[in-house]
């Protein structure tokens, strides 16, 4: 499926994706107005690092998604055509089973609304806010094959 990949060698840890994600998931969709919203909009991506390797952690939209298996309310499901792991906030009861199950730590709590939140691949726009925000091109949208090709090209250079 088409999804978001992070090229660890290109991520400089600017956290631009985090801000862009929070803003995209605000009502206003603008930075300064988003900051005034209560509750504050929640980001679904987190930049973290280990041993100088920096990674923008996203929902991987796993083919065999442990969060869907764990969800007891039917809030999480697989969208057949796109392969997206989708979360229906109206069905979510905030049991955090998905958080327990996700090996990537890509699902977080929205404490105010008492529901889980995760990457929804920006349903309100055609592109992806985090990818658009990435100044170094570390975030990449495409299939696994396309991502591999990009990485290969890089090593040839």
């Amino acid at each position: 499926m088409k999804k978001i990949f992070c090229d660890i060698t290109k991520c400089v840890g600017c956290k631009g994706c985090e801000i862009a994600c929070a803003v995209e998931h605000s009502k206003a969709k603008g930075l300064s107005a988003a900051l005034k919203e209560r509750p504050l909009p929640k980001r679904r991506v987190k930049v973290s690092s280990s041993d100088k390797k920096i990674l923008s952690i996203h929902c991987q939209h796993c083919a065999d998604a442990p969060c869907i298996l764990a969800c007891m309310s039917g809030a999480l499901s697989k969208e057949k055509e796109s392969g997206k792991t989708v979360h229906d906030k109206d069905r979510c009861v905030g049991c955090w089973m998905c958080i327990m199950a996700c090996p990537f730590g890509a699902i977080v709590r929205n404490i105010e609304d008492h529901i889980a939140v995760k990457c929804d691949l920006c349903p309100d726009r055609e592109d992806f806010a985090c990818v658009r925000a990435c100044p170094t091109g570390a975030l990449f949208v495409g299939t696994e094959e396309e991502f591999k090709k990009i990485l290969k090209k890089k090593t040839h250079v």
């Binding site: 973290s48 690092s49 041993d51 390797k53 920096i54 991987q60 083919a63």
Partner: peptide, 23 residues
């Protein structure tokens, strides 16, 4: 978080064999 276990994920490809880990 997950970033902290990247070396382990990289180091044990047989155990972390789901495509998402590899990606």
């Amino acid at each position: 978080d997950y970033a902290k276990i990247l070396p382990i994920v990289k180091g044990f490809p047989d155990k972390f064999n789901k495509p998402e880990f590899k990606e």
